[in-house]
Design a protein around this nucleic acid. Sequence first.
DNA 1: CGACCATTTGATATGGATCAAGCGATGTGG
DNA 2: CCACATCGCTTGATCCATATCAAATGGTCG
Lengths: 226, 226
Amino acid sequence: MLAPVQEARRPPETRHVRAAPPTCHSLLGALDLTGAVMPFDRNAEIYGENEPADYVYKVISGAVRSYKVLHDGRRQIDAFYLPGDVFGLELGDEHTCSAEAITETTVLVVRRTHVLDAAERRSEVARNLWSLTARDLRRAQHHTLLLIKSAQERVAAFLLEMSERLAAGTAFELPMSRQDIADYLGLTIETVSRTLSQLEGAAAISLPASRRIVLRDRSALDRLND
Amino acid sequence: MLAPVQEARRPPETRHVRAAPPTCHSLLGALDLTGAVMPFDRNAEIYGENEPADYVYKVISGAVRSYKVLHDGRRQIDAFYLPGDVFGLELGDEHTCSAEAITETTVLVVRRTHVLDAAERRSEVARNLWSLTARDLRRAQHHTLLLIKSAQERVAAFLLEMSERLAAGTAFELPMSRQDIADYLGLTIETVSRTLSQLEGAAAISLPASRRIVLRDRSALDRLND
DNA sequence: CGACCATTTGATATGGATCAAGCGATGTGG
DNA sequence: CCACATCGCTTGATCCATATCAAATGGTCG
């Protein structure tokens, strides 16, 4: 239930570079991105809750978890961010969640003020900012819906979500641990593990390795997913 | 667990009027609001999930619930909207939730295109749109955090939220039923009712009527709320 | 007054949490 | 290269918070 120990937390001041060519279909693509590419170790904190939100981030490679911790140590993971995802964008001046790299991760870091200034001048940039937040809102609502479902339904929904976001074909490699999945789904590791075993037993998936998922019967998962 | 029967659903075409003087500190206040004031009966549908999102709404009086229903009838209430709150604003062209009046309710209805056009021309309007969505996102994240807590903690958090949003002093009247509260908190009516009784027994609140709440020991509730 | 609906309260059932081993992969030092 | 510690995961046994089922109570409106 406890978050992993934090490793080095560095302010985003590493090698300042001209950003890699922005992909134009991406949501931050409309911005003229000048930022730093930063690497983070496994479990390294990218920012903490209530810290000043001076930067906006985009995952280049790896995976990020965004979470909150209650006084007694319970951790709720609000979102996983995967390559291409933008995160850390806030309306206010402080981050509302903490963010950590799940695996070795590189992110593109852009000053928030650059983005806000651009939005003031160009309406399509403003619309992109709105769009990013609206997408997060939809994901959050979807996530809320998850949390009223049974363990089987939650795990099935999680697998389908991950399959859409990182599957090439029918199989994929999970970047996150069982504990991360549990804290995302509001379950314990034991229940996540048991449920995956059940799904394997029911021939809905197979688990050639603990983090490797093969979808064997997607319609069975779909049936569990509303 | 079932949503109440829907009553008449009318498209927003009633008495078209110049909007009442917009309150300037309000988030839609920056817009030059021209819209219709529309009344809705108790339990009347304002819009349904997947319907075209042609209008944006602002509660003038009454209360609104925004919810999703799963195939098997489980209902998740995403948000309650109270006087002053704006709702129904979507980035896409369709509503992602249904909305119903909880009590007799009047709302101000504004064409979405008016708002979007204004946002394209004026950056402070664009920022207001973003701000509205960001506020919803924060509430959604707060709500997600609720759903991993115990029944007592959920109910305490709910009471504190409602107290902030509609209390004059230390007491307030809930507009919504126990079923609505249950579907918001991911509990059953029985658990909600029992938990309220417990809190009354513990002298944290008193319940002079089933929908009237008096906060008797706010710090006791705060202690339950992270 | 009587019907209806919302709410409370009581008795029992159950899904997932908790407690407790065991297991397999990975890495480290001898 | 192997013994052994560590870590992430799985599996088993038991417990408990909340759901479910059932009934009583109370408030509202005709």
